[in-house]
C-alpha cells in the first residue's frame, strides 16, 4: 500500500461490488424465491411457476454466478491497483 487515498479507492470499489452482488443475492432468493413469488405466478415453467424454480434451482445457479463474478472482478481489481500477491 502506497497511500491512504489509493487504499480508500480500492476499498470503496470493493464495497460497491459487494453491495451490488448482495442485492442480486437477496432478490433471487428472498425476492423471486419467496416474497415476489406471487408476482411471478403468471410465468409458468414445467407445470409450476417461475418462483418455484427460483426457490429450488434458480437461486443456487445465480449464487454460483455471483461468487465467480466477484472473484473475477476482485482479482482483476487487485492487479489494476497493484495490491495483488506477487
Amino acid at each position: 500500500m502506497d497511500g491512504g487515498s489509493d487504499s480508500n479507492a480500492y476499498w470503496s470499489a470493493n464495497i460497491r461490488l459487494v453491495v451490488i452482488c448482495l442485492i442480486i443475492w437477496a432478490i433471487v432468493s428472498f425476492g423471486f424465491g419467496i416474497i415476489l413469488r406471487p408476482m411471478l405466478s403468471g410465468i409458468s415453467i414445467g407445470g409450476t411457476d417461475l418462483g418455484f424454480w427460483f426457490a429450488q434451482q434458480g437461486s443456487i445457479l445465480v449464487f454460483l454466478a455471483l461468487i465467480f463474478f466477484y472473484a473475477w472482478r476482485m482479482n482483476a481489481l487487485d492487479r489494476d491497483r497493484g495490491v495483488d500477491e506477487e
Binding site: 448482495l22 424465491g33 443456487i60 449464487f63 461468487i67
Partner: peptide, 26 residues
C-alpha cells in the same frame, strides 16, 4: 424434508447454498 413438505422447505436449498455467497464476499 423437501419430499414430504414440498415448496416450503426450499429454505434448506437456498439457505445452505446462499451462505456461500456471504462466505465468499464477506
Amino acid at each position: 424434508l423437501i419430499a414430504f413438505t414440498g415448496y416450503d422447505n426450499s429454505s434448506f436449498l437456498m439457505g445452505w447454498t446462499g451462505g456461500y455467497v456471504l462466505l465468499a464476499l464477506l
